[in-house]
Amino acid sequence: MSSTEAPDTAAPNVLDSWFVQLAAPDVRRSATGNGVQGIVGKQLSRIRTIRKIADDLGYVETGRILLIEARKALGR
């Protein structure tokens, strides 16, 4: 097959579904109150405390990375 052929005519539904899926709210973000969101908030608070300790010990970069990674993991 040459690279300029376009064989996949049945694809729009698959692709459309993907775009819809990308735009759907992240379930980790949609929880409210004391559910997932509350737990996430507490975890972030603890991580900020750890970051401050890391900063105080001179591990500034480590603390920064920790917070970024934690935010990603928690969907924030």
């Binding site: 040459s2 690279s3 052929e5 376009a6 996949d8 005519t9 694809a11 729009p12």
Partner: peptide, 21 residues
């Protein structure tokens, strides 16, 4: 690779053909 008049689906198919080739 030619992109003229390609729909989104066609463009993706051409990309994947190139990748698989």
């Amino acid at each position: 690779i030619d992109t003229d008049a390609a729909t989104t689906e066609e463009a993706l198919a051409r990309l994947l053909c190139a990748a698989a080739s």
